[in-house]
Design a protein around this nucleic acid. Structure first.
Lengths: 323, 323
DNA sequence: TACTTTAGTGCAATCGTTTGTATCGCTGTC
DNA sequence: GACAGCGATACAAACGATTGCACTAAAGTA
């Protein structure tokens, strides 16, 4: 059916090895021969069979991208960027969704291992021990989590949290609540550590909470009870839920309480009031993670952590504190 | 490095072909031998090399999933469901993003063709002629667009539109605007045709518009000018933009104008007022599309169109019309 | 002129599976 | 007792590429 390297070889009167080299080792073949072969290949619509190539070279030119939940608005921009970057490098991306289940995550890595050159792990739920074990089988890059000895891409949410708190204090808020996320979350820990070092302000920690709209909704009671007039939420979904919960209790945002989220996901840009938030460079993270992965595929892994800048985006959910 | 079928064969004292058959043709090998081989394979951590298998069988056990824009909230649930379904069938999914560019879409299909058993095309922007040509190379299933002679998964947005208009008329609205989408869109056409057949109501068509929040924002002027008190928007993003545009012109939703969107994406559930919308069964579409695709991979393609039901979800953006 | 180098190409092994065919030892039949 | 039939297994040829090595002819060197 399909046109193979052999067809091209016959059509151009050379051996298959010459055709192969015309593509992958140009300097080894006569320029004239090369252009002729390439033209004929083009003509015949020849595309190298990657499976066959993978068999001899051991390189599949595929990478795996594993996320907890594709439908979580945080991930699509990252996936999109990673896929585009991989395409630039002539790699294809398997996307897999673990449904937040560590067991599924491990299985997925196992079955993917043999047909990819590396795996991108986004916000993995696996234990460090398991990651340690699996890294023997395939190169990893981890995004959004610290993993000792592995190349890692992180976003500086600590600095983001400081910017957020500074923004709130500049607006006159003196008592601030940090609505934390799940207890195991690296992001949440970073935010707490950063907030704890701030001066000129009282910070109360409320949590842990599920990282969802419902988590925010439920946290509204605590926020009201805390007497805080400024809130930094674990992420935008929590912030949106919180704003709703506050409204139910007669509190207006930003009139009575200022709320800041994290992630800058699409719903936050469209909700009302539009969410002031800490923007995470997810697209950049995806791009860089792919580059790091491909780099560690054909040389020794550089186990450095890359830290990306975050930025405060002020929209409508924060305002001046009144006495 | 990795453990191959040969290692398993040697460890169990049989020929590789026996090991192969122990997996893929159990009835051809002695039950005793089989269990022994399987145990040893398990022990050694043997995983068949898919590239090698693909080479002989011609089946890669991969499928391609091509969408216009991963970051568009409409797609992730579909991708998620498709990927999960594929995994059930022991298939892996390449996800690729065309950035809404037909040329990229065509390239993508070309390069993917050789390493997948079939391609899922979601809301393709390709011309019918191009699809016609490409289908020679690889089995397709098309989602969210009519494609003659190809298996197709559609969502009954026509019925959804009728439900929406009925809902508005039941609330007393007598003049309704349909804010249409891009001119080439199948969905938009379906909605127009359905709306045109409704009685007891004036329907005005406003468009075409880009399928984004900005498109909705810009359409607000026309809506106000049209004198309509009820609006059906091309999708949720447009609806959200429209609500914002109406607010800028002093029109309250649902007080002055009722607005209905399409898709039931997450932002619509979180925006304020919460959006009344026509829910599209995207997850089901993803699942079914995968099944159809795998089916047409190893038998003749059934070129039937599957139509999925939509549903009206009433939230807060629609209300009674007042004289 | 004889020898070495080098550019360009062909040859053949190899990657890890699958699968059609051959082989082998039994059992049952006539 | 010869042989067909059969279950179980081994053999070996693919699949489509890559790549180390061998070879040839021309160019460079002494």
């Amino acid at each position: 059916m399909a046109v193979t390297i052999r067809d091209v070889a016959e059509a151009s009167g050379v051996h298959v090895s010459t055709v192969s080299r015309a593509f992958s080792a140009p300097h080894l073949v006569n320029p004239e021969t090369r252009t002729r072969v390439l033209a004929i290949a083009e003509d015949l619509g020849y595309r190298p069979n990657r499976a066959a190539r993978a068999l001899t070279t051991g390189r599949t030119h595929n990478i795996g991208l594993i996320v907890a939940d594709i439908a979580n608005p945080f991930f699509p921009p990252l996936i999109k960027a990673a896929q585009a970057q991989a395409r630039l490098r002539d790699y294809h991306v398997f996307v897999a969704d673990t449904d937040e289940d560590p067991q599924v995550e491990e299985d997925l890595i196992q079955t993917l291992t043999k047909q990819v050159d590396g795996v991108l792990l986004c916000s993995p739920r696996l234990t460090n021990r398991t990651i340690e074990r699996l890294r023997e089988e395939v190169p990893f890059v981890v995004v959004n989590r610290r993993a000792k000895g592995l190349p890692t891409v992180l976003m500086d949410v600590g600095r983001g949290a400081r910017l957020a708190v500074e923004h709130l204090t500049a607006l006159g808020h003196r008592r601030i609540a940090l609505v934390t996320g799940p207890s195991g979350s690296w992001t949440s820990k970073e935010m707490q550590e950063a907030a704890a070092t701030m001066s000129d302000v009282d910070v109360v920690f409320l949590g842990p909470n599920p990282p969802t709209e419902l988590g925010g909704l439920a946290a509204a009671t605590d926020v009201v009870a805390s007497g805080a007039t400024g809130v930094l939420a674990y992420n935008d979904l929590v912030a949106i839920g919180l704003i709703e919960g506050l409204a139910e209790r007669g509190k207006n945002v930003p009139g009575d309480v200022s709320v800041i989220g994290v992630d800058d996901i699409v719903p936050g840009r469209l909700s009302r009031p539009k969410l002031t938030t800490i923007a995470m460079p997810t697209a950049a993270a995806g791009r860089i993670a792919v580059d790091l992965l491909l780099q560690s595929v054909d040389s020794a892994a550089t186990a450095a952590a890359t830290m990306l800048e975050t930025a405060l985006i002020v929209r409508e959910s924060t305002g001046k504190a009144h006495r």
